[in-house]
Design a protein around this nucleic acid. Structure first.
Lengths: 294, 294
DNA sequence: CTGTTAGCGCCTTCAC
DNA sequence: GTGAAGGCGCTAACAG
């Protein structure tokens, strides 16, 4: 084979074995998502897929039709779907198709599909707990853009929910704002959380796009990090570490999630394991942006 | 066919027709590229591919091996390659493969491959010309991260080259800096361009990631846009328009480029047209960030 | 123009 | 264990 420089033809192999060695990855491109984070997931999926000798077909239209097309033509052995909404209309379609599929996200009703996601709710709780332990009693949450919350993207909903719950159960004062990724909006959000008679002394920020601007906006207000205000971000580790002074962060482990997702489809393919739900546990990395409450 | 809910099996069709109806898209994920812009290209490619009834296989390892793998296994009918470097090592590999291929970018030697790209050089010239016409005589260029220039990503090189050429031919004072995407680096870059006895009165910025921070950094220096300083950005139109006050911009038409790229592979596939080089012409959109020189 | 059939290149079963 | 052959589902060429 080496001498003749032979390599098998995938189509013939697929026809005979009825396996394409291709996974479909559904990545809807909504304007409100953070492309950097999405790309990390995509990369993780493609890289892991290769270790299982699978390639990745990229589907960007969230039109359920394209899911049906690639499955009915047997182009893919399994499907991965990103950016899941609480009651995602694609889920019933997928569930009917009888193809191994994994959702990256946690919908209200998985309908027998496998799901994997970061425990965003736990991430928020961890962040709040850390700030509480440092003595902060008024904590604010700066979250995903309004559009993400409006369509109930599961990461946005759950991070916010976890924050609200944690603050309530600890008895901390709390407020939350949804924030677009530009500095006027950030300024408005900060105005909101620092107003009133019980201004926040700490922030939990779940919005990667705001990080480049946050430090400046705070210093414009005469607020030093972490002297006057502590900040915990929920973001990929490299984003958190890339800053001049690293953020204290609950890292979104995109690589782990992507890898899990692929492993789960492959499990269902080869050993047809039943559907499972996996939540990846959060962990907090200390940076230079949190300190005792003033 | 409709009644039986029939749909052909792609593998059988591919075997018999020796056409997979799949295009390979090579997207290396270097840390210095702007993922937002990359995603726009990817989206454009996938969307256009569908109009030709083609799907897209995503290859993220820039390892030339994966290019050879998908072609030798006949998984793809053609290849599109992004993020081209001046002397890209993948080009000789691709050229040898005898598969329709299109480079998105302009290498030093295309070796008979088709290429399509935005005319970044012309974009810079257009920006400089606009500023010159407004009376600016000292203009600075804030460009891609050093890493992009170091590896001679063709967009980075050519935008810078165009700027230097245009300033020289007009007789304008000019300087240029490569800038990482964080605010300390931006601050340092701004220090550089405003120092000396002939400080810049206008900027050409070819670095999307800096835009969210730029306005603030300038106002920290007491510089108003466009009163004290004019700014032209080279960036996708939506990025330029998304700002609170729209940037005067030479838009990177990601959709046009992606579409062209797909059209060119399809042309070579069906009518085996010869290789061609296409440069997409730049055009300037007036925003609120340029004005007469002070 | 319609209807038939021989492959496309591989996998997998079955006979040896 | 090794080896031969049928068939996967479609396309394209060819005969009618």
């Amino acid at each position: 084979m080496a001498r003749l420089n032979y390599s098998p033809r995938s189509s013939a192999r697929a026809l005979a074995s009825s396996r394409s060695n291709v996974l479909g990855l559904v990545v809807p491109l909504r304007p409100d998502v953070n492309v950097g984070v999405v790309m990390q997931f995509v990369t993780a999926v493609v890289t892991t897929a290769r270790t299982f000798n699978q390639d990745v077909l990229l589907l960007t239209q969230d039109d359920p039709g394209s899911i049906e097309r690639v499955t009915s033509q047997s182009m893919v052995d399994g499907l991965l779907m990103m950016d899941i909404e609480a009651r995602d209309p694609r889920i019933p379609v997928l569930a009917r198709l009888q193809k191994p599929a994994v959702l990256i996200g946690m919908p209200d009703e998985p309908r027998g599909l496998s799901c994997v996601d970061f425990d965003f709710s736990g991430a928020s709780r961890l962040a709040v707990r850390h700030l509480w332990d440092l003595g902060h009693r008024s904590i604010a949450f700066i979250g995903s853009p309004p559009a993400s919350l409006k369509r109930h993207a599961t990461y946005a909903d759950r991070a916010l929910q976890g924050f609200t719950d944690a603050a309530a159960s600890l008895g901390a004062a709390s407020r939350s704002v949804a924030c677009e990724a530009d500095s006027p909006q950030l300024a408005k959000s900060l105005d909101a959380v620092f107003s009133g008679k019980n201004p926040a002394t700490a922030l939990v920020v779940h919005n990667e796009a705001l990080l480049p601007m946050l430090r400046e906006e705070l210093s414009l207000r005469g607020l030093a990090i972490p002297g006057d205000i502590s900040v915990v971000v929920i973001a990929p580790a490299d984003v958190a570490k890339a800053a001049a002074r690293p953020w204290t962060a609950v890292s979104i482990p995109a690589m782990d999630i992507g890898r899990s997702a692929v492993e789960m489809v492959m499990d269902r393919l080869s050993r047809d394991k039943p559907a499972e739900l996996r939540l990846i546990a959060p962990s907090l990395t200390l940076g230079e942006t949190t300190a005792e409450a003033p």
